[in-house]
């Protein structure tokens, strides 16, 4: 790590390493107190006994994980079977988040490419424009989307007046609306890292490829994509992970008809269920899934660097 700062070997690196400890201390404290400790509490709570109407009893219990994986029927005394309810809810979140990532990539990549290939003087303006909508709170943006797409909202009114449709497209309270909300919420997280990668790309490489009679498709897949891949992967993670735990879009645009992971966890703490250990367990399972994705990414990255 220190080698990245000091260019010379030996002494200078060590000199800088000495500076590093006090400098990094605030960050470690923040991460320790506001990340590791709360996650530790959640982990412990997920193994405790549920107290009726919220709270925990300090007795070890696997009931929360049992509830997640085993179905014992409405009255809780049927022989245990595999519980599909939560798998279904997780799967819904995963494919919605995955689709949002894919859509963001399809729209974000050309956008990032467009911005990166503008003259340096206008790039800042384009980037600025990308960030403008995100000065507004996520809640406000999600509600605005609801206003836009409702049956008698502006979108349907315009399409009807333009004669493109004969009756309103019913979007509100469907999974399509949830998807629109997710995709729109996190799109800039795709654009910005890809932009950063494309901006560093040396366009002489494309020229060289063209000189060597590579088709445009081959140039894209063989030259450009490998170079900007880290940006794409970073963008995908930045869109996928928050989409996975999102609960504003499903609640406001999807009509809260179907739980996603985020709203399921929310219900355990704030709803009538008051099942804190189960909420904690669901959060830990979500966290583990995200960790797995990130570890997978980190390993593929380090393997790439070795080769």
């Amino acid at each position: 790590m220190a080698g990245g700062i000091g260019s010379g070997p030996g002494k200078s690196a060590r000199t800088y390493a000495g500076f590093g400890v006090p400098l990094i201390l605030p960050a470690w404290l923040v991460i320790g107190i506001f990340l590791v400790v709360p996650i530790g509490i959640m982990l412990v709570y997920s193994f405790l006994t549920k107290e009726f109407r919220g709270g925990v009893v300090w007795e070890f219990s696997l009931a929360a994980y049992d509830q997640f994986f085993f179905d014992r029927g409405l009255f809780g005394d049927d022989p245990p079977q595999i519980e599909w309810t939560y798998i279904l809810i997780f799967w819904r979140s995963i494919w919605q988040a995955g689709l949002a990532t894919l859509l963001s990539l399809l729209i974000g990549f050309p956008t990032a490419w467009f911005i990166a290939t503008r003259p340096a003087s206008t790039r800042t303006i384009w980037l600025f424009l990308i960030t403008v909508p995100y000065w507004v709170n996520l809640l406000i943006r999600t509600i605005s989307m609801k206003f836009l797409i409702r049956d008698n909202g502006p979108l349907n009114t315009w399409l009807l007046e333009a004669g493109l449709i004969s009756e309103p497209i019913h979007l509100i309270n469907t999974w399509v609306a949830v998807q629109l909300g997710l995709f729109y919420s996190y799109l800039p997280f795709m654009v910005l890292p890809i932009y950063a990668a494309v901006e560093r790309y040396n366009f002489a490489l494309s020229e060289a490829a063209a000189d060597l009679y590579a088709s445009r498709f081959v140039t894209l897949t063989q030259i450009i994509l490998p170079v900007v891949k880290p940006g794409i992967i970073a963008g995908c993670i930045l869109v996928f992970v928050p989409s996975l735990g999102s609960f504003l879009a499903p609640d406001l645009l999807g009509g809260a008809k179907n739980f996603m992971i985020g709203s399921l966890i929310d219900e355990q703490f704030k709803g009538a269920a008051g099942n804190w250990p189960f909420g904690a367990a669901a959060a830990m399972i979500l966290l583990s899934m995200v960790m797995l994705v990130l570890i997978f990414y980190a390993r593929s990255q380090s393997r790439r660097e070795e080769t």
């Binding site: 409405l74 009255f75 809780g76 309810t85 939560y86 279904l88 809810i89 809260a256 008809k257 179907n258 739980f259 399921l264 219900e267 009538a272 269920a273 099942n275």
Partner: peptide
């Protein structure tokens, strides 16, 4: 507890 199960099943 039964109501909770019912509600979760309703919204799954």
């Amino acid at each position: 507890k039964i109501y909770d199960t019912m509600w979760t099943n309703l919204k799954k």
